[in-house]
Amino acid sequence: MGMLDGKVAVVTGSGGGIGREIALHMAQAGAKVIINDIGASLTGEGASATPAQQTKQIIEQRGGRAEINTDSVSSWESAGKIVQSALDHFGRIDIVVNNAGILRDQIFHRMTPEEWDAVIDVHLNGSFYVSRHAATHFRKQEGGSYVHITSTSGLIGNFGQANYSAAKLGICALSKSIALDMKRYNVRSNCLAPFAWSRMTSSIPAETPEQKARVEKIMRMGPEKNAPLAVFLASDAAKDVTGQIFGPRMNELFLFSQNRPIRGIHAAEGWTPESIAEHALPALKSFFVPMERSGEVFSWDPL
């Protein structure tokens, strides 16, 4: 008996990397899998069914069941076809893994509206579209699980990724809203912030000695290290886990904090700009969140 026996999973962007490993592990755990991938480049150009076919071949060689869908997550209509493919092939849908993604990295003052829209459309809009189509079926059957792939670029910060960071942090808010709205239907929604060397991290600069050292650390973390947590979150063993953000890093597992007040001060007479500068700023400044990137927060070697 596998942890996902009898369940049907849709894994977007599962033609390679982290998505492929999640699809493989879910199939190994007993799920029937819809492998969704348009086969585009890292920046979203082109299309090919080959990556999805390769994932399907591996699953079937290992005795699992899978079907391919090559529709894009980035429009409402095509996202509906992704969910419908699960119903057409396997008669139901129990799990959605929102993993599909592209990159259009650019320093903020040079970022174009096209670079912004392209990334938001796939990551944030795509997660909403696929999740919303699945929600109709989750509600009817009173059960289902979402696993959304976020990133420390959004949770903590990174250079040259305003579009990606905004989308990935937005996905966390989307997940929390789904968890709150659909709890009454036994539907769970969680986020996973992966650490791995994959196509999505291959664009990290490696020019300075510090950058090269950071990339070398990431390259030691294979995409397969993220799959066990995704399988668990999708399973009935996680029936009490919803609205959370997790991060697997090699053999470490992290639970991320979510925004809460960290310091408060009160003035009986109210505040003026001057009193804020004189009294509030000194009281609050030592609690400011540092200007750090993910690599600076996770500065130790992965265990």
Rank of each mutant, 00 (worst) to 15 (best):
P290Y: 06
I276N: 03
M3S: 13
G126Y: 05
N251R: 14
L4Y: 12
M111V: 06
G46T: 05
R199P: 10
N125V: 00
Q141D: 00
F108P: 08
E216T: 14
S203V: 09
E207K: 04
K56H: 11
R65P: 05
C191D: 04
P302H: 09
L229R: 05
D94V: 15
R249F: 07
I218N: 01
A29C: 09
S275A: 06
I120H: 06
Q141M: 05
G154M: 07
A230N: 03
R263S: 11
I34P: 06
L155S: 04
L24Y: 08
L284I: 03
T12E: 02
F128D: 01
V215T: 12
I35D: 06
N125D: 03
P51C: 03
Q258T: 11
I262A: 06
R139Y: 10
H25A: 14
A280M: 09
S74P: 12
H148C: 06
D236A: 11
A79M: 07
L233E: 14
I276H: 02
D301E: 08
Q141L: 10
G46L: 09
E207P: 04
G39N: 07
G80A: 08
V73S: 09
K56L: 04
W116L: 04
M1R: 13
A230L: 01
V97C: 03
A267C: 13
